[in-house]
């Protein structure tokens, strides 16, 4: 059986926001080390990999591998019934076909209980190679969100060029073109806003902005985002969750121009 408790329902709500644009239904794979989700979008262009480690919950119990097949639209409906600050407990029995969700107000004077019907989802597991990337850029997640939003006014594609000097995002469309360059900043006062670049060799890649805008739904989960890139391979966009795990997105680049 599974029993996992989070001090704030807000976290699961935010996680759902971060993946529900990409994936309609997926397995939440639970085992004694935590809860993992790996799902590709229907067009096989993007993949989301989510990890919530057991020690991020208090308590967490799961004594065997338990894949919970969940329709995210249905889960979203039930999570709308939770207050952001509610204590959230999820439970599932080994042979059950429902996920129990309990929302408890902080002062424990209101307890609501819901059951979500589970489904059998036959999904293939993908091995993601441990890759050495040519360029790894760590930057403010809010800044990345703003750049994606701003450049989506110009085009549905974004070109990312990374050099020693900085990272340049550019877009070119019918109305004209635009770009935003962030220089590597070593001495800013606010660490959250710094841009750091680890570069083996310069990269230039083109991506669909639509997908980046789906990824930036994860912005509330972390003040930082890490973009890992090599030419001609999928970009890894990672949001680390404090003491809990991560949300990673992989996106295939656009080819030829």
């Amino acid at each position: 059986m599974l029993e996992a408790r989070l001090p704030q329902a807000k976290l699961l709500k935010s996680l759902l926001e971060a993946i529900k644009e990409l994936v309609v239904e997926c397995n939440f794979d639970c085992n004694d080390s935590g809860i993992a989700v790996q799902a590709m979008d229907s067009s096989h262009v993007a993949l989301v990999a989510l990890l919530l480690r057991a020690d991020g919950f208090d308590p967490y119990r799961c004594d065997r591998n338990l894949p919970l097949g969940i329709n995210l639209t249905s889960l979203n409906k039930i999570l709308k019934c939770a207050g952001n600050e509610d204590i959230l407990t999820i439970k599932a029995s080994d042979d059950g076909d429902v996920l129990n969700l309990v929302f408890e107000s902080k002062d424990s004077d209101r307890i609501s209980e819901y059951e979500l019907k589970l489904m059998d989802i036959d999904s293939e597991h993908l091995g993601i190679p441990d890759t050495q990337y040519d360029a790894v850029v760590s930057m403010s997640s809010g800044e990345f969100q703003r750049i994606c939003r701003d450049l989506s006014q110009i085009s549905d594609s974004i070109v990312i060029d990374v050099t020693k000097e900085g990272i340049k995002f550019s877009a070119s469309g019918e109305v004209g073109n635009g770009s935003v360059t962030l220089k590597q900043s070593g001495s800013v006062d606010r660490e959250d806003e710094a841009t750091t670049i680890e570069l083996q060799q310069a990269v230039s890649l083109t991506f669909s902005l639509k997908y980046f805008q789906y990824f930036t739904k994860a912005t509330p989960l972390s003040s930082r985002v890490v973009l890992s890139m090599s030419n001609d391979v999928p970009i890894l966009v990672e949001y680390k969750l404090d003491n809990l795990g991560y949300v990673r997105y992989y996106l295939a680049p656009k080819i030829g121009d």
Binding site: H44, V45, L47, H125, L126, G127, Y250, I255
Partner: peptide
């Protein structure tokens, strides 16, 4: 114009 690549082939099916 650039065409959208796919993830197939980058990852191995386990």
């Amino acid at each position: 114009t650039a065409t959208q690549g796919r993830l197939d082939g980058f990852f191995t099916v386990l």
